[in-house]
Design a protein around this nucleic acid. Structure first.
Lengths: 216, 216
DNA sequence: CGCTCACCGAACCGTACCGTACGGTTCCGT
DNA sequence: ACGGAACCGTACGGTACGGTTCGGTGAGCG
């Protein structure tokens, strides 16, 4: 019973390194396998072969296969970074531009192949083993983004640029206007249309509609 | 090479029976297993035991395991029915009520455990075997609903109740306003909040916002 | 030099499950 | 009553994969 198994309970979201460089290389290989062929393609033997490491090391580092999957999710979540929002509420125009940039970044993340692969993985396992992966993805991914967005929107409200009662509700509307059903369609394997690949204009129109609903 | 394997290419969407009563019972059992324990819980031996049939019959009817999964998706898709829309544009109020009812029905379907289980199944398999299930779910499920919604919205536009350029675009906004990120969160295993379970009021506010964007 | 430690590569085991085969049974048409 | 078709229950082969164990190797260090 190795103690190195990746555990949600003892992992802090602000832990910086969390994985050694060697382990990060292996996790990157795992991510590549996952993006290419889905969960079935990520076998311990296959990963050991691809990453030129031994299965023994995999089990030493991650405990078991579930620990490996959780580590992949945590690793990728730690890689995602959103632009800073310093001085974003200088005036109405820059704030709106900042909101648009946030939405575009959100679209870029959610529609990326790596994010889609990890979402597929977590969803596929969401009703098997007490739902570790889905929970991990939500806590380390969606909830972080949601919190970030709420503070941004509330900042806009404080400066009299937006008007709403519940920041969470407003964020969800912004999310819905931007994502629509594209996310689920991509998850199901459909290819994005050319218009849907133009993230900038997609974000633009979403923010435009958002302001028509929540603009002050 | 049995000829009874379920095949997408030869299946028509308007085929009424498509499965014998006995097969439908078996498929219902398969659906129950899927809802309870995910894809892992749906084994041929387990289904044969649960449904009191022989594995030989399963393979005779559905060809192989993939054919069985495809049949489950097709079966459930055929079960979903939306309310009729006869005389829905009599006046502004009834049309709006009809749109609200449509949204509520949409929420009811998408948030049901069976729909979630099938979406999880299709998504989990979306990058393995040429993506049969995801494609099937999209064609038999989402695209049908989308077409239905578009005709409804265009009917409203013809009667001067709505204003938009692209019906597909308008429908996607309506979808986004209603679903937001609840669907993906449920797929990931999070439980719906009490407010999110109140489908009627959720539909109400979504339609309200939709009218503020596209109302004539 | 010799010790330790981390690691690699490979062989191995147990298990789970798909797909098939076969004997026995029920049901239906003639 | 009879024959065949459909079906049930079960047992079995083949395979893929998770997890374990073991011998070998090279780097760092006293």
């Amino acid at each position: 019973m190795p103690a190195a198994a990746y555990d949600i309970a003892t992992s802090r979201t602000d832990a910086a390194p969390e994985f050694s460089p060697r382990q990060q290389v292996v996790l990157q290989h795992a991510l590549t396998l996952l993006v290419e062929g889905g969960e079935k393609a990520l076998t311990t033997a296959g990963l050991a072969r691809t990453a030129s490491c031994s299965k023994e090391s995999l089990y030493k580092w991650f405990g078991d296969r579930d620990g490996l999957l959780a580590a992949v999710v945590a690793y990728q979540a730690s890689q995602v970074q959103f632009p800073s929002e310093t001085g974003a509420t200088a005036d109405a125009a820059t704030f709106r531009a900042h909101v648009t940039a946030f939405v575009e970044a959100l679209l870029g993340v959610l529609f990326s192949e790596t994010s889609l692969a990890l979402n597929r993985l977590s969803i596929g396992q969401s009703n098997t083993n007490s739902n570790r992966l889905g929970h991990l993805l939500l806590v380390r991914g969606k909830h972080m983004i949601s919190a970030r967005a709420r503070t941004m929107l509330e900042s806009g409200r404080r400066h009299g640029l937006l008007k709403f009662d519940d920041a969470e509700d407003a964020y969800q509307v912004l999310y819905g206007l931007a994502i629509r059903d594209v996310h689920i369609r991509l998850l199901l394997g459909e290819n994005a249309s050319p218009a849907e690949k133009d993230l900038a204009s997609q974000a633009e129109t979403a923010v435009d509609r958002f302001y028509r609903l929540f603009g002050a």
